[in-house]
């Protein structure tokens, strides 16, 4: 499931991962490291909301 940052609108798509932060494609949102924050606005993970 994709998650959206409620602060800036960035969408974390597990199919793509987050190459900027060395998050491999295929990583579910739930498995992101605790330190991972929104790559655009740096909001923490509890600012993310399920998208679909």
């Amino acid at each position: 499931m994709r998650y959206i940052c409620t602060c800036c609108g960035y969408i974390y798509d597990p199919e793509k991962g987050d190459p900027l932060n060395e998050i491999a494609a295929g990583t579910p949102f739930e498995d992101l490291p605790d330190a991972w924050v929104c790559p655009l606005c740096y909001a923490e993970q509890d600012s993310f909301d399920p998208l679909d």
Binding site: I4, T6, C7, C8, G9, S47, D49, P50, L51
Partner: peptide
């Protein structure tokens, strides 16, 4: 930015 407005500022989160 409607998502930031609705889910963020307003708190209408899913």
């Amino acid at each position: 930015n409607r998502q930031a407005l609705i889910r963020g500022r307003w708190g209408y989160r899913r």
